[in-house]
Design a protein around this nucleic acid. Structure first.
Lengths: 351, 351
DNA sequence: GTGAAAGCGCTAACAC
DNA sequence: GTGTTAGCGCTTTCAC
């Protein structure tokens, strides 16, 4: 490829002048500028962004690490992040930790080595491990000159430990889900428990049972991995246990798809026999029949705010205190918990 | 950040030796190696991949350009690509052209400037424009030393013009979709036409009508943009036209979601009144009620093969002739065209 | 087995 | 307004 040097020679100027033309930095004589641009064209020159990055210590790339590339959830988040990155002239690399802490740590090292300008992290770490992991991250992200590589954490609150965080009040969302089932008359509530790192949903389930004075039955709780199939097998197990239930709190919406299938095969009708509520409110919830009640998590907003916050940090670079952005959840009632729910078809506009 | 120089000083060796240790290139005295590794640890040194890339002319990054970040379709493709990239030690950047040729061209320029080692391109260009666009790409991707930056094209055949291509026989798939509707007794088939760049589906519709001796009615064809909402409004229009129809060929599955909604609001039952077939066979097809017949496109396989092919080109770098990988489609019959279709629940395992 | 030094392609003082 | 040049952090040839 042609280099800035080739362009300089072709245009009979110095490399400094070429650089100035390309970056509109200093003012350049219009005639000279024309000559340079002509040479750029003639040679098909494209600036080598790697060399530029090395010199500038700026790559104009951000990294986003997610725990699961398959899910609808992150698709919404990533789409929003991508839009913001685009607007800011950054490109986006996506890394998938596959819910493995080891892999996540390796990815972060790789990302720092690759000099990304900022990182959006959806960590697999659970609430209890935050302080310890934060310490790890601090060491990892600290440059020698006492500055951190900008990092914004999604879905966990690391702000007391120095990192900007965009959170959703998942626990409260879980309480609302359980409250809604209770209000609809459910007294034996089964639970498709999310993976351990989603501990706030799990706490919400236990605490709600307590609050309602309902007794916990381990046969009504099954651990899952957030996939359709996992929801299917988990629900099969609960059904096989023979323990009756009249409500189901599904750790996320995707699990509910599998649960629907298992329940349908068992001849159970929703919501007549069992009322079902999911979590996340992905578009799937609208499409299932019956349509699935869920706890909405503002996915796009989360992605957008996280990205905007990250770029602010990258570009302003100031040392202000870490920010915590807290987003609300919202109960969305559909026919899986309330046969008389009025369903607007408005969702269709949004995808 | 600590540099290789800092490490060299701390370990009392030269930078060349540090480099040799880090890359296991030449053999280094075990004691020296230990000293170096100790220094690396002590300083928390991480190699600067940007500097390395500049020197090596290799970034270990690939770019994938898609026309639509929102769709289920690309999620499947990207997931497969990501897995292969991971296995090969590459990281993946995602670019969204949003179905704009201008944006696609800009992205490609940006990608080449950023020195990506290879590109996976899902172009927005339609079949007819391939020769011309191929010429454009050849100019763009040609290094001065007569070598092309590895590029693998998805869903279009650029192999006669010098670029590896992973294709799906969409036209045939479209014929099969139409044939199936015809076989099921449909004689007035409506069409939710995909955007112009998906011209093979459009051709399949016209050619099939011809073949079956069915007359074309423009009122039964509506152009769309591949979104739920677009499917919804397009179907509304067709319904408003008052022209009766007994079959629907939906340009892709997502459009069918909107069409379902519109038809349901109009009190039309599927498949009794109208038989519906989609395209792509995304998982949604299983979840809709009635479940949606579709033409399967092997999305993961496509992503995997394209990525594998790209890495072969990157790493072997040989000048063999461009490859065309052609993948088959498959008719998947569900209850939207055949009320007696036997539906396995096996799909649930795959997501 | 190890080191000195050139250079990848760019930017930004600084000099003129 | 333009040019000279040092240097970003790494790899690699060539001496030793």
């Amino acid at each position: 490829m042609a280099t800035i040097r080739d362009v300089a020679e072709a245009a009979h100027v110095s490399t400094a002048t070429v650089s100035n033309v390309l970056n509109n930095k200093k003012k350049v004589n219009p005639e000279t500028r024309e000559r340079v641009l002509a040479a750029v064209d003639a040679l098909g020159f494209r600036i080598n962004a790697v060399a530029k990055s090395l010199k500038n210590r700026k790559t104009n790339r951000i990294a986003v690490v997610v725990t699961d590339l398959a899910g609808q959830f992150f698709q919404s988040v990533i789409r929003a992040v991508n839009a913001v990155a685009d607007d800011n002239g950054y490109s986006l690399s996506i890394f998938n930790s596959d819910r493995s802490v080891t892999k996540e740590k390796n990815l972060l090292r790789e990302i720092l080595s690759a000099q990304y300008d900022g990182v959006l992290l959806d960590t697999v770490i659970s609430t209890a491990q935050i302080p310890e992991y934060a310490e790890y991250l601090r060491r990892l992200f600290l440059n020698d000159d006492e500055k951190f590589v900008p990092l914004t954490v999604l879905e966990r609150d690391f702000s007391p430990y120095g990192f900007d965080s965009v959170c959703v009040n998942i626990y409260e969302g879980g309480l609302n889900a359980m409250q809604h089932l209770y209000d609809q008359g459910c007294r034996r509530i089964a639970f498709l428990a999310p993976p351990p790192s989603f501990d706030e949903r799990i706490r919400a389930y236990y605490d709600s049972l307590d609050r309602f004075g309902l007794k916990y039955d381990p046969k009504l709780e099954e651990s899952t991995l957030f996939s359709y199939f996992s929801g299917y097998t988990a629900m099969k197990k609960i059904l096989d246990s023979g323990v009756p239930f009249d409500g189901l709190f599904s750790g996320n919406d995707e699990l509910a798809v599998g649960a629907y299938q298992a329940m349908q095969e068992a001849g159970i009708s929703i919501p007549q026999d069992v009322r079902v509520i999911g979590f996340d409110n992905i578009f799937l919830a609208n499409i299932l029949s019956p349509s699935l009640s869920s706890i909405n998590v503002p996915k796009s907003t989360m992605g957008r705010l996280a990205a905007e916050n990250l770029f602010r940090r990258i570009e302003e670079g100031h040392q202000e205190l870490p920010v915590k952005i807290q987003l609300p959840t919202q109960l969305v009632i559909r026919t899986s918990t309330d046969p008389y729910a009025v369903i607007s078809n408005d969702w269709i506009r949004h995808v």
